[in-house]
Amino acid sequence: MSRSTIRDYEGGRHDIHRATEAQLRLAFEEGGVVFVEMPGLGWGVCLRPASDRD
């Protein structure tokens, strides 16, 4: 995906497409990011421990 796609999404210039969202999520998860839902707060992220990433 292009940098301009990410820049436009982050800048609020357009909504993200479902396929683009899936690609971003997969890339983050492969990099060790875990998405967690926090009741009353919404979604957050944290890093999986290094020992679990290999």
Rank of each mutant, 00 (worst) to 15 (best):
S2N: 15
R3P: 00
R3V: 14
T5M: 12
T5D: 12
I6Y: 13
I6A: 12
I6S: 04
R7D: 11
R7C: 00
R7T: 14
Y9Q: 00
Y9W: 15
E10R: 09
E10K: 07
E10V: 14
G11C: 04
G11T: 02
G11K: 07
G11M: 01
G12A: 03
G12Y: 04
G12K: 02
R13Y: 09
R13D: 03
R13K: 15
R13G: 01
H14E: 08
H14I: 02
H14N: 10
H14P: 00
H14A: 11
H14S: 12
D15W: 07
D15Y: 07
H17K: 15
H17P: 03
R18M: 03
R18N: 01
A19P: 01
A19I: 13
A19Y: 04
T20D: 15
T20M: 07
E21S: 09
E21M: 11
A22F: 00
A22Q: 09
A22E: 11
Q23F: 05
Q23G: 05
Q23Y: 10
L24C: 08
R25M: 07
R25I: 10
R25F: 04
R25Q: 09
R25T: 10
L26D: 13
A27R: 12
A27F: 09
F28K: 06
F28N: 04
F28H: 06
E30R: 15
E30F: 03
E30N: 12
E30V: 00
E30W: 02
E30I: 00
G31P: 02
G31S: 14
G31H: 07
G32I: 04
G32N: 05
G32R: 05
V33N: 02
V33R: 02
V33D: 03
V34M: 10
V34H: 04
F35N: 03
F35S: 05
F35K: 08
V36C: 06
V36P: 01
V36M: 03
V36G: 01
V36D: 10
E37C: 01
M38H: 12
M38F: 13
M38Q: 14
P39T: 04
P39L: 05
P39V: 04
P39R: 11
P39M: 01
G40Y: 05
G40D: 06
G40H: 06
G40R: 05
G40K: 05
L41Y: 08
G42D: 03
G42M: 05
W43G: 01
W43Y: 04
W43M: 08
G44C: 08
V45Y: 06
V45A: 14
C46K: 15
C46T: 14
C46A: 12
C46W: 00
C46I: 06
L47Q: 06
R48D: 03
R48A: 09
A50P: 01
D52P: 00
D52S: 11
R53M: 12
R53C: 14
R53H: 05
D54V: 09
D54L: 13
D54F: 11
